[in-house]
């Protein structure tokens, strides 16, 4: 019979709290392969599609489009698809605890639920922010390298003719550029946090991912079908349109449809994610695990 006396266990020093929970959540998130895979997928999709789009833009930008050319937004185009991938990590971070039954082990080792939820949220926020910022800055620099020699073409006699090569790139020291690039990372991170909140409400991976895509993508697509007199009232509240104002230099959305400012819209977007997280936190605290 093995001795059961705990050799490696010194007496307790104080009360278990938030710092231990933080270290635990960090161990959890880094010790499963799905984290690496989904983070990698987010980076590949965001940066890859941004690169393709920038390359395409630098090959054939029409003279008609010059006035609206947004060197930041065009270089970050992949965010639109990257958000669909980062919501998977946002959901799985919490919902995988329910699908595996791990949540009951977690809450048995630390029954103070606020501590568990808060630590998980904070660790995930940092991971999502780092991922988002990496994607937006990398996409930005790749995009500018293409835009520095953009072929401009014009339609003459029904045919497209290259008329010039121009430098349409921008740099971080220009007005609002740094804010917009950081905004791209923030947008991705907050999308993931929205999914995190939905996962806390739904406790189901597929359900939370579907709901997040519904909020981010489907509302935007449905907004496109609205008649103009509705669109002018409703469009600016659509999560994608509100949140995306921050990651460009120019307004996103149809002409003549009012939109929020960069920070105003992003603030509303954070509000949506925050509401999901608050409801999720309340339910996490109250419901039987």
């Amino acid at each position: 019979m093995t001795t059961l006396t705990a050799v490696g266990l010194p007496p307790a020093k104080g009360r278990s709290g938030f710092s231990g929970a933080l270290r635990s959540e960090w161990t959890k998130i880094r010790s499963v392969r799905s984290t690496t895979y989904t983070l990698l997928a987010t980076a590949i999709v965001t940066i890859g599609i941004s690169t393709l789009f920038s390359w395409g833009q630098s090959g054939h930008t029409s003279t008609d489009d010059l006035a609206d050319f947004d060197a930041v937004r065009n270089s970050l185009f992949g965010i639109i698809f990257g958000q669909l991938v980062i919501v998977v990590i946002g959901s799985m971070t919490l919902s995988s605890e329910y699908s595996t039954g791990m949540i009951r082990t977690s809450l048995t080792s630390m029954p103070r639920r606020g501590t568990v939820f808060g630590a998980k949220l904070l660790v995930f926020t940092v991971v999502a922010l780092v991922t988002g910022l990496f994607c937006s800055f990398t996409s930005f620099f790749i995009g500018q390298s293409f835009f520095s020699s953009t072929k401009i073409h014009d339609f003459r006699n029904g045919e497209s003719v290259d008329i010039a090569v121009r430098d349409l790139s921008t740099s971080l020291d220009k007005p609002h550029v740094l804010q917009a690039v950081i905004g791209g990372g923030l947008y991705l991170a907050v999308s993931a946090l929205l999914a995190f909140g939905l996962a806390a409400i739904l406790r189901h991976t597929a359900g939370a991912i579907t709901a997040a895509i519904g909020v981010l993508f489907v509302t935007f697509i449905m907004g496109q079908f609205l008649p103009h007199d509705w669109a002018v009232k409703v469009d600016k509240y659509i999560p994608f349109l509100a949140g995306s104002q921050i990651w460009g230099l120019k307004k996103l959305g149809e002409k003549g449809v009012p939109m929020f400012s960069a920070w105003g819209g992003f603030g509303l977007f954070v509000g949506y994610a925050g509401a999901a997280i608050l409801i999720g936190a309340y339910l996490f605290h109250r419901r039987d695990a």
Binding site: L9, G20, A21, K28, S31, R33, S96, T100, R104, V116
Partner: peptide, 29 residues
């Protein structure tokens, strides 16, 4: 409680480590 209330993608070591950390238990335990 139930058998395998565990995230299957995590190693036995990391499973126990993340639990130990919540209560500030040393990793050698």
């Amino acid at each position: 409680l139930e058998a395998k209330a565990i995230h299957g993608g995590r190693s036995a070591y990391h499973h126990l480590l993340c639990l130990a950390q919540t209560n500030d238990l040393p990793a050698r335990r």
